[in-house]
Nucleic acid binder design. Sequence first.
DNA 1: TCGAAGATTCAGGAAATACTGAAAGTTCAG
DNA 2: CTGAACTTTCAGTATTTCCTGAATCTTCGA
Lengths: 177, 177
Amino acid sequence: MTRIDEIRSEFIEMWGRMSSLWGITPATGRVYGWLITQPDPVDADTIMAGLSMSRGAVSMACRELVDWGLVHPERVGGSRRVAYRAETDLEKVVRAVVTTRKRREWDPVLERLDEWIPGLKGERSREAKVLRERLEDIAALVGVADEAARQFLSGGIVQKLGMQMLMAKASKARRKH
Amino acid sequence: MTRIDEIRSEFIEMWGRMSSLWGITPATGRVYGWLITQPDPVDADTIMAGLSMSRGAVSMACRELVDWGLVHPERVGGSRRVAYRAETDLEKVVRAVVTTRKRREWDPVLERLDEWIPGLKGERSREAKVLRERLEDIAALVGVADEAARQFLSGGIVQKLGMQMLMAKASKARRKH
DNA sequence: TCGAAGATTCAGGAAATACTGAAAGTTCAG
DNA sequence: CTGAACTTTCAGTATTTCCTGAATCTTCGA
């Protein structure tokens, strides 16, 4: 095994382990990792062979990645075959992840909090009063995060420039060492 | 079941479901949710009864929460018994979560990237070149996140004020509706 | 329209993860 | 120092989550 294969397989394993952190299954994570290491789009059979996964698992993983917007399906000329290409523009990746997680995870939390807090307004007990205060604090914090996400996603030119600047800076700083 | 008990149990269930998102086990999430709903510190037996969990599970959950800094153990006067109190200062909570996840999850990623990238410098193939570019981009992005986290944790007065202002604003905005 | 290439689905089995409960460990009052 | 009160540990089991692979469905060239 050459150095690059070694690095590739470690990188893929890393994506597998980080999968829960992103809210995807391990197999999906490995597929995304694998796709990132491929310079050109690859089809399902190649992924199957490369990761020793079943056809079904590859299909489900790719679907999930396409839903997230992390991978793009491309028709291979003159055939039904689909080849998958990883999105490598990191701004798009971050945007896709923020969008999906916000919708799936934060929005429902805010909704529930907004139901609960008024429901506690009537209660007289100290218990209810304390709980209400705590829920209000949490709602405020989630609201801030929500607003920040919204700002980022609405993505005026300002945010884009800011992000690119930061990335360029970090990139340069890292190269020094 | 009164309204408050209903809300409490839904809130606890929510923490159970969100647990994987925070990187804790469901039982640990439920315990934290339960503690948040309690105005006063509670001991292990009370948690056991309230959540119908085994003694062992409660012990492990509380330990994990204490490790994260989300819960504080307090000795009950004149006895070996320990009572647990949820941290409700949200700035401290966010700080604790950022610290722990950064250490456990981001730092290792950066470390690995820093090993891999030089390892690819020698390789001539297009494959290696493309992979190296992608890893460098990822490293830059993680580096930015890392720096942001560091800034936040080093927590000058500036960040604190900024956060408090945002929270106050969000809090007020929410009350209007 | 038909047949074949290829994608998708999903029931069931495999693997990972979490929880229980009893035994062992720890601490403290007396 | 002792034993009672309380906590922690961990082997075994329960539960959840994930993956496989064969059956089914879809699309496209001819």
